[in-house]
Amino acid sequence: MAPDNVHRQAAHERQARNRWMAETDFSRAPFTIAWEITRACAFSCVHCRADAQHRRNPAELTTEEGYALIDRLTEFGSPILVFTGGDPMMRRDLFELIKYADAAGLRCSLTPTATALPTVARLRRAQQAGVRRIALSLDAPLPEVHDDFRKVAGSWERTMTILRSAKSLGISTQVNTTVTSHNVDLLPEMVTFVQEVGAVQWSVFFLVPMGRGQQLSMISPQQHEEVLVWLYELSRAGGFDVKATAAPMYRRVAAQRGAGGSAIGAGFAFHDGLDRPAQGVNDGRGFLFISHLGDVMPSGFLPIIAGNVRRDDVVDIYRNHPLFRGLRDPERLTGKCGVCEFRDVCGGQRGRAYAVTGDPFASDPACAYVPSGWTA
């Protein structure tokens, strides 16, 4: 294709995505879909949501079932499809699945584990198949802290090697950091490493205590608030985007500090090339999770099964299942979240509420904010 035609096609694709984003209604389509294509993983990370296993489950969705699933996901438009796990590189058909999804118009992202599998050659294959972003976990600036967290000696150095390799190939990279009481004081030291590997985004994940993550201590509500304020100030410095994952109250923090004050968007502006929405994504509201066995849930951190793609229509589940519809209805929220003036902007992290209280509509126990209309 001639260079001018390539540029025109790229511009056309950007315009199409922008129209899709402008028209996206989270009651009709998610922005992000995470597909746990396998639960197999060589690591035993102490925070693991999935209780990952060392061997693949023979009941995983097959390649053909994966293709059929991808075909249905295109009904949503062009959401981001995250190939995750476990370790997605433990599936031999990974690149075929990515290529199929990319050809179908889905925007593919990959979250490999820092093992020997993500070689330069495999990273290049992922790139050629259509991966637009890879994300790796780096939980501390010190190898000994990160390696203890991941329970694999040398995993810190391997993570840095993979990130540098991706940078050399021109693959957009994202650094994920899980915040717990073990590393909260080390977060400022992480900035240098995010910059060094040229990450376009730092996704700071606030622990949801489930799976092996139940063994860890969440930071306190006040610590959550302090970290979120610090992240907001960091985001204003530029250099890379900052995303607070499993912490929708970050949008409230930003709105309170004058980041535009929008009732929906809180003034966010992302520059990572994924056309992120102004409205807040939350479990079941802009987000959809599909397990390695085909179970459909609002997210991997809200493990309430609403159906299975082998017998149910994933599009119908997202749009019409009572659980998903309830999660998109602010009137269903209870406690502080139910009376909070920021509930449309934030809504609280539904997975954390469920993990701690057993009620997905309860208040987020990590939030320190006291709404004006709240009386305990």
Rank of each mutant, 00 (worst) to 15 (best):
M249C: 14
I305G: 08
T192F: 15
W374K: 04
L333R: 10
P58M: 05
A269I: 13
T173G: 07
A59W: 09
E96G: 14
D147W: 04
P221H: 04
E23A: 13
T178N: 11
L61V: 06
R133A: 07
T173L: 00
V184H: 10
F342A: 00
Y67Q: 10
Y250T: 08
Q279C: 10
C45V: 15
A2T: 15
C337V: 12
V315M: 03
T24S: 12
G267H: 08
G238E: 08
H224S: 14
A34T: 12
Q222S: 14
T161M: 11
T192V: 14
V314D: 06
L110S: 02
R132Q: 15
A246R: 09
G347W: 10
R310C: 12
G258F: 02
E64I: 15
A355D: 10
K151T: 14
Y250V: 04
D295W: 09
M297Y: 02
L169C: 00
L123G: 05
T63R: 14
R343W: 01
E196N: 06
N5C: 15
G261C: 06
L117Y: 07
A355H: 01
A153F: 09
L207H: 08
R212A: 06
L73V: 11
R91V: 09
V229E: 11
T119W: 05
Y354M: 11
G260C: 11
S220L: 11
P365Y: 01
